[in-house]
Deep mutational scan, measured.
Amino acid sequence: MISLIAALAVDRVIGMENAMPWNLPADLAWFKRNTLNKPVIMGRHTWESIGRPLPGRKNIILSSQPGTDDRVTWVKSVDEAIAACGDVPEIMVIGGGRVYEQFLPKAQKLYLTHIDAEVEGDTHFPDYEPDDWESVFSEFHDADAQNSHSYCFEILERR
């Protein structure tokens, strides 16, 4: 099963200049909980913004210009990325925008964090048809001392 995991502000903004323009430790914990011990696929820009392999996960970098870091697996196509994951129950696609666009048609599940923030962004989550998805989990949280904005975790499964 292919799943996408993303944090989205208003207007589906997911990033600005290779960074997330908010401070939500709870979302980072949600991300870790849902990706640990699963292969993660990301684009080169996302890889560069993280700066290191995510521990406890097979890191697969999709790029037309593969790098030389041998701590991760470099691939040039969506099919190659899927094959590099091996026989696993769930593959997690973690961004960025172009990689989400490439995998959305193949995805069966979306793990979304909806952030109540209007922020400037240069990267967006692809538009998706809500009628194609069923919400199977939703959990709202107010902003607090650690988390700069209110947010809602949601899991959607393709109908």
Rank of each mutant, 00 (worst) to 15 (best):
Thr113Leu: 00
Asp11Ser: 05
Asp11Glu: 12
Gln65Asn: 05
Glu154Lys: 15
Cys85Ser: 08
Phe125Ala: 04
Thr73Val: 07
Ala117Pro: 02
Val78Asp: 13
Phe125Ile: 10
Ile155Arg: 09
Gly56Ser: 07
Asn18Phe: 13
Ile94Cys: 04
Gln108Met: 06
Met16His: 01
Pro130His: 14
Ser49Asn: 02
Thr123Cys: 04
Asn147Lys: 02
Val72Glu: 06
Gln108Asn: 10
Glu101Tyr: 07
Met42Phe: 14
Glu80Arg: 05
Asn37Val: 10
Pro105Leu: 10
Val40Asn: 08
Pro53Val: 05
Pro21His: 01
Leu36Lys: 13
Val93Ser: 04
Ile5Gln: 00
Trp30Pro: 01
Arg33Gly: 02
Asp131Ser: 03
Glu48Asp: 06
Asp79Met: 08
Ile155Asn: 03
Ile50Cys: 11
Glu139Phe: 08
Ser148Gln: 00
Glu154Met: 15
Leu24Val: 15
Glu48Lys: 13
Glu17Thr: 01
Leu24Lys: 00
Trp30Glu: 14
Pro66Lys: 08
Glu139Lys: 08
Glu17Asp: 08
Asn23Cys: 10
Leu24Asp: 13
Asn59Phe: 05
Pro130Thr: 13
Lys32Trp: 01
Asp79His: 09
Trp74Ala: 10
Gly97Ser: 04
Met92Leu: 15
Asp79Ile: 07
Ser148Phe: 01
Phe153Ile: 10
Asp87Ala: 06
Leu112Cys: 10
Leu156His: 12
Trp74Thr: 11
Glu90Ala: 06
Asp116Ala: 14
Leu28Glu: 00
Ala7Val: 01
Trp30Ser: 15
Lys38Asn: 15
Cys152Asp: 12
Ile50Arg: 01
Asn147Thr: 05
Val40Asp: 00
Asp122Gly: 01
Gln65Pro: 03
Phe125Cys: 08
Ala84Tyr: 11
Cys152Glu: 10
Ala29Gly: 03
Glu157Lys: 10
Glu134Ile: 10
Arg159Gly: 13
Ser64Cys: 13
Glu139Ser: 06
Gln108Lys: 11
Gln65Arg: 10
Val75Gln: 09
Asp69Pro: 10
Trp47Gly: 10
Arg98Thr: 03
Pro126Gln: 15
Ile115Phe: 09
Arg12Trp: 07
Asp132Ser: 12
Arg159Asn: 12
Val75Cys: 05
Val119Ile: 08
Ala26Leu: 03
Met42Tyr: 14
Leu156Arg: 15
